[in-house]
Design a protein around this nucleic acid. Structure first.
Length: 277
DNA sequence: ACGAGCGCCTGTCGGC
DNA sequence: TGCCGACAGGCGCTCG
């Protein structure tokens, strides 16, 4: 499900709360209820239970698609993968189908990690840097300049779309926002990364930031049965719009396979330069 | 270095 | 109606 904007939306809900979801900072964990063992990546269940009990939530952070729940002495790291979601329930609330991990707080409220497809993972780490250091730059971080981005693109020879999905190259993009960014930048998803000019690289970085910020502003995207209130799906230009007219030129949007992933683009606005393949 | 194939899981949808 | 394959917002692994 979630890419950077969806994870950021959840981070803000957990950190600041909403009218029907209390903020987590300050809550003390009474116990953890692990309902699907493989959800826990580390440490072993026994150590996890013993260490997490009694810790207090300090703040909720994010790195790329990872949520970082900073506790008194450890960080609970959560990756939602395809179908993960988090919700805070009052003491009167009930566990739901597909809840894989539940953290019960001293005040009775609880945090549920719901994950239909069981791809999501949770780590309790003293130092999350060990897990996060292989990640590429954060796309909204100003330290990633167009010049650096261009140099990174030129240093590889890969199709641009799979490269943008590679979390070691740049961290936080998924299938939706990659397709949307490439359309805005007017780049064909199979464009070889080493052929991009400085101007194209700058335009691509601007496009990535534009669609991510629009996604965050809309509280993320909600599609199919995975609905959590976001509205970015109403701003899609290409994703899930196969056959519909491009909002820029009217040409029907096409869907192809690139790097094993379903890919949506406008064949007119995002034409491959002749001979670039 | 790169791309393809596959595994991990459950659920929905369209075609026959 | 039932069955069956395709597909789904992710990512790690192996193999050429």
């Amino acid at each position: 499900m979630p890419e950077l904007p969806e994870v950021e939306t959840i981070r803000r809900i957990l950190q600041d709360g909403t009218p029907d979801s209390p903020p987590l900072p300050g809550k003390r964990i009474r116990r953890a209820d692990l309902r699907w063992a493989r959800t826990l990546a580390a440490p072993e269940p026994g150590e996890f239970q013993a260490r997490i009990a009694g810790q207090t939530v300090a703040e909720i952070g994010r790195r790329a698609k990872y949520l970082l729940i900073r506790l008194s002495s450890d960080t609970l790291v959560i990756h939602l993968r395809m179908s993960g979601d988090l919700r805070v329930e009052p003491a009167s609330g009930a566990a739901a189908r597909h809840d894989r991990l539940i953290l019960h707080f001293e005040d009775g409220d609880f945090l549920a990690f719901n994950d239909t497809r069981k791809f999501g993972r949770v780590w309790l780490l003293t130092d999350p840097a060990s897990l996060l250091s292989p990640l590429g730059p954060e796309p909204l971080d100003a330290s990633l300049t167009p010049e650096i981005f261009h140099a990174r693109l030129r240093s590889r020879r890969r199709q641009i779309k799979p490269l943008l999905l590679d979390q070691h190259f740049i961290a936080g993009l998924g299938n939706i926002y990659t397709d949307e960014a490439l359309h805005r930048a007017r780049l064909h998803p199979r464009t070889p990364s080493n052929t991009l000019t400085v101007d194209q690289a700058a335009r691509l970085l601007e496009s990535i930031r534009f669609v991510l910020r629009a996604g965050i502003k809309a509280n993320g995207a909600s599609i199919d049965w995975v609905y959590r209130g976001g509205g970015f799906q109403n701003q899609f230009q290409v994703y899930h719009r196969t056959g519909e007219p491009c909002n820029h030129c009217g040409t029907p949007i096409e869907r192809i396979r690139v790097g094993q992933r379903s890919t949506h683009f406008c064949p007119q606005c995002q034409a491959l330069p002749a001979g670039s393949l």
